[in-house]
Design a protein around this nucleic acid. Structure first.
Lengths: 223, 223
DNA sequence: ATAATATTTTAGGCAAATCTAAATTATTAT
DNA sequence: ATAATAATTTAGATTTGCCTAAAATATTAT
């Protein structure tokens, strides 16, 4: 069943991610993500279809099969565990780890993944707040919303970031916001859509809509 | 200068290892190690020659250039650091790590290697006792001899094993011999070339020539 | 020294993954 | 409903790494 090339794995992972947010994914989108061309995607679709990894009818669309989904989750699991390792054990910043994890996620040993998971203490989330699937491919979907949608007055905890850029990290570091930080929105300004927020014990300050869009939060139950 | 494929790296590493023990390495030997054919080796020799990674004249032979040597040592460094990581942090046995490290050694990030090295405490030897090159490619060659060549009466410490097989590990575990164990040879029996030895504080026992050949030791200075 | 043997190289092809350009099918807009 | 546009697929090449079979060179044994 297994024995997939790195290339095949990358297609599977990419299709998985794209189909998470958008039901109707096409060859062009996949091609864009993989820096290749639609024609190459078609070739791979036929190949993965033959391997039962996806359901594909030409001109009509494609989606991961159950088997494909399982493979994708395995790759995501490896990627996020390695990212956790890089940040927690090797002192990388979270804006540095994606590219390295992109290579590490293709190391094949299943035993390695399980040992790594134990060594890291079975982490549930990667350094960007994204959930790490367990060894059965089960992924914990926590109810999270974008900070711009957080109602005024409610308290929430930053649970994930929507970008892995150094620029975002720089700004978050400056504003003392990290994953786990408590936030409540005090006011919204319609002129520029900026938000007045309050974190932990600090005095209130303002953030841009761009920043708010890059932050995902989970609601804290009110006392 | 860089940007080598995994395949190219494997050729470089293989040529490096073969040329360590044997000056006159040919295409057939390389092919055997890489499970390929001599003709394929020739193709790669031409390619690596063009990249200045080895000095090659057709029909006359080949050897790694200085650049090639440096690349090889970098790969060996990564391989051995990862093996150390797998054994020390993830509780693998030393007979399990080679194949996994064979994949990990091709992860490209230089920063990763240096961080890993720090995290592991700059180990000097891998779990099989082989020296880990430093970041400049310097490799510490400790004077070590085969146990069969250890003179009767002299004390020595097991410094490396000559095979990574589970069978060897099984036997060594049973006999309570590991890297670091002190050994002295008490007698040699010419009938079957077996050796009577003494380790640490135990009572003397006998080992086969096969086992002795798989053990490398460093002499301890006499008091 | 030369014949037999071994080693290495060339020639010509194959499979994977990619590309461009052209053809086919689907979607959208009028 | 059909023409224009967009998306997808096919056709035919390219590159990398590999193969087999045959040719070229080196080594060895007499």
């Amino acid at each position: 069943m297994d024995n997939l090339s790195t290339t095949e794995e990358n297609y599977i992972k990419t299709i998985y991610h794209l189909q998470q947010s958008d039901a109707n994914v096409g060859t062009n989108e996949v091609a864009a993500k993989l820096n290749t061309k639609a024609a190459s995607v078609t070739d791979m679709l036929k190949k993965l279809n033959a391997k039962q990894i996806l359901n594909y009818e030409k001109y009509k669309g494609f989606s991961l099969s159950d088997e494909g989904q399982k493979i994708a989750l395995g790759i995501v699991r490896k990627h996020r565990l390695w990212e956790f390792f890089l940040v927690e054990k090797l002192n990388f910043r979270w804006d540095e780890v994606h590219t390295i994890a992109e290579e590490l996620e293709h190391i094949s040993s299943g035993l390695l993944v399980e040992r790594l998971d134990s060594f890291l203490g079975h982490p549930k989330f990667d350094p960007h707040g994204d959930p790490i699937p367990d060894s059965n491919g089960k992924i914990e979907v926590q109810p999270q919303i974008n900070l711009v949608d957080l109602p005024i007055g409610s308290s929430a905890k930053v649970s994930a970031v929507g970008s892995q850029s150094s620029e975002l990290l720089e700004l978050l570091t400056h504003k003392n916001i990290a994953i786990g930080t408590s936030i409540s929105v005090i006011r919204k300004f319609s002129f520029d859509n900026s938000l007045e927020i309050e974190t932990n014990a600090s005095i209130p300050f303002t953030i841009s809509r761009e920043l708010a869009l890059a932050l995902f939060v989970t609601l804290l139950k009110e006392n």
